[in-house]
Nucleic acid binder design. Structure first.
Lengths: 121, 121
DNA sequence: CTGAATCCTAAGGGATACTG
DNA sequence: CAGTATCCCTTAGGATTCAG
C-alpha cells in the first residue's frame, strides 16, 4: 500500500481509485463485461443511470483505454461499446473487491449499527 | 460484478466502494497497516492530510470496524489507532488493486495522452 | 495532544431540454 | 439513436478557529 505514497504518479493512482469508487464505473464495466452493448441498451440495462452520467462514465472509461467505442455509419446511428482486454483485467481485480464486500457486508453493517448506537444517543 | 446490481445491499456496497475511492482511506489503512500510530504521528506521516480529514477518515474506518481506537487516560491525552483483522483483510484486497494500477499505469497514461490529443485540438 | 465546529469552494451527479 | 448543454443541488474536502 505504500505505493500510495511512493508511487511514480500518485495523481494517476488516485484518479484511478476515485474512478473505481464513483457511482457508475464498475457497474458499466460489469454490464459490458458480459457482452458489447449500444448506448440505449446500457441505459435500459442499468437501473437509475441518466444518459448524461452514462456518457460521462463511458468517456472516462474510453479515455483510460478500458472501454472501446465503435461507431457504425448507419441511419439511425449505431454506437457499440465493449470492454478492452485492459478493462477486463481491471474487472477481474474489481471482482475480488466485490467478493470481499459480499463476504464481509454483514459484519460491517453490524459494526455500523453498534457504532451508531454507541454514538448517537 | 453483477453483485453490483443484485447485491443484498447495493447501498452498503456502494458506500464501501466510495470509501475506498476517497482521498485518504487507503493511505491511512496502509500506514496503519505497518504499525499502530497515534493521531499526530499520522498527521506527520501522511503528507498533505489535514487534521479534520484525518479525523473524518478515522471515524469512518472505526465505524466500519476496519480500525480500532484506544484512548489512554493520560495527560496530555494519548490515542492510538490500529487496523483490525477486518481492516487487514481489506488491505490485502486493496493491495491487489494497487498492483494492478502499478502494472498498468503507463499504459493508461499513454491512452489518456492519445485520447486527449485526439479530442482537444 | 486530540479532536469538534464552522465556513467556504469545487466537484459529483440528477433533471430537463435541445441537436445531428 | 446517441448524445450535448444547462441548471441546480448535494457532498467532499481544505482552512481556520475553538475546546477538553
Amino acid at each position: 500500500m505504500s505505493q500510495l505514497c511512493t508511487s511514480d504518479s500518485p495523481d494517476l493512482f488516485r484518479s484511478l481509485l476515485s474512478r473505481i469508487g464513483d457511482k457508475w464505473t464498475l457497474i458499466v464495466i460489469g454490464v459490458l463485461g458480459e457482452e458489447r452493448k449500444r448506448f440505449t441498451e446500457l441505459v435500459d440495462f442499468i437501473p437509475g443511470i441518466s444518459r448524461r452520467m452514462l456518457t460521462v462514465t463511458l468517456r472516462a472509461l474510453e479515455r483510460d483505454g478500458l472501454v472501446s467505442r465503435t461507431v457504425y455509419a448507419e441511419v439511425p446511428p449505431r454506437v457499440e461499446y465493449e470492454v478492452t482486454p485492459l478493462g477486463r483485467s481491471l474487472q477481474a481485480v474489481a471482482l475480488t473487491l466485490g467478493d470481499w464486500v459480499s463476504e464481509h457486508q454483514h459484519t460491517i453493517a453490524h459494526h455500523r449499527r453498534e457504532f451508531d448506537a454507541a454514538t448517537a444517543p
